[in-house]
Amino acid sequence: MKIDWVALGSVFGVSLVATVAIVGLFTLGIVGLSKQATATAGSGGGSPALARSGAYLCFALCLAAVSYGIYLIIT
């Protein structure tokens, strides 16, 4: 009986980092978009264009992560 602690540890590390990174990015994207909405409504501060492109960048990275996930499933 040999427990593969290295594999378990890497599963733990990788999934932890991936989860937190993706959720963080996605949240930033959502918050950015909602800020952008309020900014165009005239109530919020900051640059709407910057918030919007930042949000899209976040979503693009999330999309890349999902694509990589699908790639992992297929291969």
Binding site: F12, S15, L16, T19, V20, V23, G24, F26, T27, L28, G29, I30, V31, L33, S34, K35, A37, T38
Partner: peptide
């Protein structure tokens, strides 16, 4: 999975604490 979800929830609440809940729920 639990630790990951715990930290991720904490993080997302922290980042989104000033955002409008209604606007973000859809996302």
């Amino acid at each position: 999975a639990g630790i990951g979800a715990y930290l991720a929830s904490r993080l997302t609440y922290r980042i989104g604490r000033n955002a409008d809940t209604k606007a973000t729920a859809k996302g």
